[in-house]
Simulated assay, not measured.
Amino acid sequence: MIRTDSKRGRIALMVAHCAGMVDLVALPVWVGVLMAHYRFDPQQAGGLVTLFLAGAVLASLWLAPRFHRLRGRLVAPLAFAASGACFIAAASTADFALLALVHLAGGVAAGTALSVTHGTIGRDANPHKLFALVGIALGVFAVVFMAFVPRVVQSAGGPVLFQVFGGLMVLAAVITAFLFPDMARPSAGEAAVAVRADPLPRAVWLGIVGVGCMALVQAMVFSFLERMGNARGFGVQPLNALLIAIGLVNLFPAAIAGLLQKRLDAAKVVLGGALVQALLAIVMTWSSGFEPYAGSASVFVAVMIFSHTFAFGLLARLDPTGRAVAATPAMLMVGAAIGPVLGGTLVKAYGYPALGTAALIVDLVAAVLFACVLALRSRTGPSGAAVPRTSSPS
Rank of each mutant, 00 (worst) to 15 (best):
V204C: 11
Q154I: 14
P393A: 12
L24D: 15
F180N: 08
L99D: 00
S223K: 01
T380W: 04
V140M: 14
G322Y: 11
V102K: 13
A191Q: 14
A330N: 04
M35T: 12
A386I: 05
F222K: 03
A97V: 07
F80R: 00
G272P: 00
H128F: 07
L200Q: 13
I361T: 08
N126G: 08
P388S: 09
V249E: 06
L61E: 00
G339C: 06
G119S: 03
Q154W: 07
S391T: 11
L346V: 13
C86S: 13
T176H: 08
A294H: 03
G122K: 08
L168W: 03
L280I: 13
L200F: 08
D182N: 13
A64I: 02
L74V: 10
L34D: 05
F310P: 05
Q277E: 08
T345C: 04
D363S: 15
A267Q: 04
G55Q: 07
V134R: 02
G167R: 04
G356R: 02
A330Y: 02
A337C: 05
G384W: 02
L13N: 03
V209N: 08
G158W: 10
E190P: 02
L342V: 15
G111Q: 00
S394C: 03
L216Y: 11
G55N: 01
V341S: 14
A110N: 02
F52Y: 14
P28A: 13
R379Y: 07
L53K: 06
P65G: 08
F252Y: 04
L364P: 00
A359P: 08
L332I: 07
S287V: 08
V236Q: 05
I282W: 10
H37N: 14
D124P: 05
G55M: 08
L318Q: 13
G258P: 11
C372Q: 15
P28H: 11
T309K: 15
F80N: 00
T176K: 12
R66P: 01
T93D: 00
T380Q: 09
V164P: 01
F178N: 05
L332F: 15
F67P: 01
A64G: 01
S307L: 10
L332W: 14
L314K: 12
I256L: 15
L161S: 05
A255E: 00
S288C: 06
A359I: 08
M146P: 00
V153I: 13
V75R: 04
V303Y: 06
A26I: 11
S115T: 12
G107S: 10
A89G: 10
F67L: 06
S155G: 12
Q43R: 14
E226V: 03
V31D: 15
G247D: 11
R39E: 06
R151W: 08
P353C: 09
A177V: 00
P150A: 12
G356V: 10
V299H: 07
H68M: 04
G381R: 09
P393R: 06
C213H: 09
A173N: 10
L318T: 02
V373T: 07
P382Q: 14
Q163T: 07
S287D: 03
R73V: 04
G167Y: 04
L34H: 04
L314A: 09
G55F: 10
E226R: 13
I282P: 02
V134H: 03
G157T: 07
V134E: 00
F165M: 04
L243K: 02
